[in-house]
């Protein structure tokens, strides 16, 4: 088609350009519609950032406008110190890092032996794992709290980490299992010939090979743990100083329901880490989630 346009006289070329614009027009209309939709999608975040930099009267008088007249930074100080978001953020970071490490390591180890070895009881373990793939937290929360109470794990960050690590992370184990199973057997045989033991083979050869799986497992666990709410909520009822950001946010809105700038600053502090991570690692987010459908 382009070759015809090139050899055609000028008037024809102009006509074809006009018709191409016309053919593109529906796409631009669609783009405009989508842009409107996307604005709705990011508006709450823009509003939050805007509100965190305004004074309370400015929010109430001029709430639709996102951009503050002159940014007020004291809201962040108030949220960080008086509303304890600094503390909450520290708790969340500790809990998230510890949980991610435990979950990824235990999933990799379990996935490795389930994928590579035939042993008695393997089927039972697999069946139990798959059967509990979809259990909701709302269902298990009462026994979880009861057993945490009896093991003296309630009201401590360690307990929260242990309970979160024991939750449903079955998908990761299955992911590792599938990956390790596809690694050719020759690799294991040559490792054994070189005299590598079980532990050396796993930590020196297999785990480094599984880096792509580890990357998406880390990311997904990070997201799940950072955003967790139900378990941290019931684990910190009598220890406000151990709240994570999501629980702290609920407590803050209950206590100071009129302090919108402080609330917005607290939300901005709590969401910033995940949003930054999202922009940096967007590709892995998308690939990790798309994998759920492709398999």
């Amino acid at each position: 088609m382009t070759s015809i346009a090139r050899t055609a006289p000028d008037s024809a070329r102009q006509r074809s350009r006009a018709s191409r614009l016309l053919r593109r027009l529906p796409w631009w209309i669609a783009a405009l519609l989508l842009a409107g939709g996307c604005f709705l999608w990011i508006y709450p975040f823009l509003w939050t950032i805007g509100a965190s930099l305004k004074t309370a009267p400015e929010i109430f008088s001029d709430g639709l406008d996102v951009i503050p007249k002159s940014p007020v930074w004291v809201n962040y100080g108030r949220a960080w110190n008086d509303a304890h978001f600094g503390e909450y953020l520290r708790n969340t970071v500790i809990v998230t890092v510890a949980t991610v490490i435990i979950v990824v390591v235990r999933s990799a180890m379990a996935g490795y032996v389930l994928g590579r070895y035939r042993f008695r009881g393997r089927r039972v373990v697999l069946v139990v794992l798959v059967a509990t793939l979809l259990v909701p937290t709302g269902y298990t929360i009462i026994p979880v709290v009861d057993i945490a109470q009896r093991l003296h794990l309630l009201n401590s960050l360690t307990g929260m980490v242990i309970a979160l690590s024991g939750g449903a992370h079955v998908a990761l184990t299955l992911l590792y299992m599938g990956y390790f199973r596809r690694i050719p057997t020759e690799l294991f045989e040559s490792a054994q010939l070189d005299g590598a033991g079980f532990l050396t083979t796993f930590f020196r050869i297999m785990l480094p090979l599984a880096t792509p799986v580890t990357a998406s497992a880390t990311l997904l666990t990070f997201l799940n743990t950072w955003n967790a709410f139900f378990l941290p909520l019931v684990f910190t009822f009598s220890r406000p100083d151990l709240r994570t950001v999501s629980v702290g946010m609920l407590a803050f809105s209950g206590e100071y329901s009129t302090d919108w700038p402080g609330m917005a600053a607290g939300a901005a502090i709590s969401l910033a880490p995940v949003i930054i991570l999202f922009f940096v690692l967007q590709r892995y987010f998308v690939e990790g989630i798309a994998g759920a459908v492709k398999n």
């Binding site: 999608w41 997201l223 950001v245 999501s246 809105s253 917005a264 709590s270 969401l271 995940v274 949003i275």
Partner: peptide
């Protein structure tokens, strides 16, 4: 795509309060 996906990454409980 980025704009439509952004809320997915954020903490539900905090979004609820906002």
């Amino acid at each position: 795509r980025t704009a439509l996906f952004l809320p997915v990454a954020t903490t539900t409980a905090i979004v609820g309060i906002v």
